[in-house]
């Protein structure tokens, strides 16, 4: 029964003598491989040579400190809300008297964890943060043997006072202005969404 007229009769072509000898084809194949022998290799010797990456490459996060060395994060949770992968969790705490040099705001993140296996390095957390506290950097998340080791706490995320992580390429004035611009649709939407969620929750 013929259902359509699109079917094609396949012919099994008899090979010519030249093809059946195989040798010409083998030599042609060997010529192809030997041409690759001297070609420039595609391999990059990783730890010594690094692949060139964009200036604004989105790699491992850093939690910034301010000029005086106090943590900038105020545990507002906006990054966690913005995160599409739900990779961020935190527990907020109130700053006690005498801790002003440690935390910039009156509320701070007692624990702050990013699950690097969930994270898709989209940078939304960075964009959402009102305190310029979280940034993605060009550092690469190293491989681990255990899943738990990929949950990065504050010990790995907060930059050390002496060794600051430079994020100036991402922290340009334009970016800052864009973030603070409340007329921008994305900010308005985010805020609306945030309050809506907060209302639903309570």
């Amino acid at each position: 029964m013929q259902l359509t007229n699109r079917s094609k009769v396949v012919v099994k072509k008899e090979m010519t003598l030249m093809e059946r000898l195989y040798l010409p084809a083998i030599l042609a194949g060997m010529w192809i491989t030997i041409k690759h022998f001297l070609r420039k290799k595609a391999t990059i010797n990783y730890p010594e040579v690094k692949r060139p990456i964009a200036q604004v490459y989105r790699g491992m996060h850093v939690l910034k400190r301010d000029e005086k060395g106090a943590e900038r994060c105020t545990a507002c949770g906006l990054c966690a809300v913005a995160c599409p992968a739900e990779a961020i969790t935190m527990i907020a705490e109130e700053r006690k008297a005498g801790e002003e040099n440690l935390y910039r705001e009156e509320k701070y993140a007692a624990t702050y964890e990013i699950n690097m296996l969930r994270c898709i390095f989209c940078g939304d957390c960075e964009e959402a943060c009102p305190k310029e506290a979280i940034f993605l950097t060009d550092r690469i998340v190293p491989s681990e043997f255990l899943r738990n080791d990929f949950v990065y706490g504050k010990d790995k995320l907060v930059e050390s006072v002496s060794q600051r992580v430079d994020v100036s390429v991402r922290q340009t004035k334009e970016v800052a202005n864009f973030k603070k611009d409340n007329k921008q649709q994305h900010n308005i939407n985010d805020l609306k969404q945030f309050f809506k969620n907060a209302l639903i929750k309570h």
């Binding site: 491989t33 030997i34 690759h36 022998f37 070609r39 420039k40 290799k41 595609a42 391999t43 010797n45």
Partner: peptide, 13 residues
């Protein structure tokens, strides 16, 4: 090494 070179790789180094 030869396998690697024929496949545009570097091989054990």
């Amino acid at each position: 090494k030869i396998a690697a070179f024929l496949q545009d790789r570097l091989g054990p180094n």
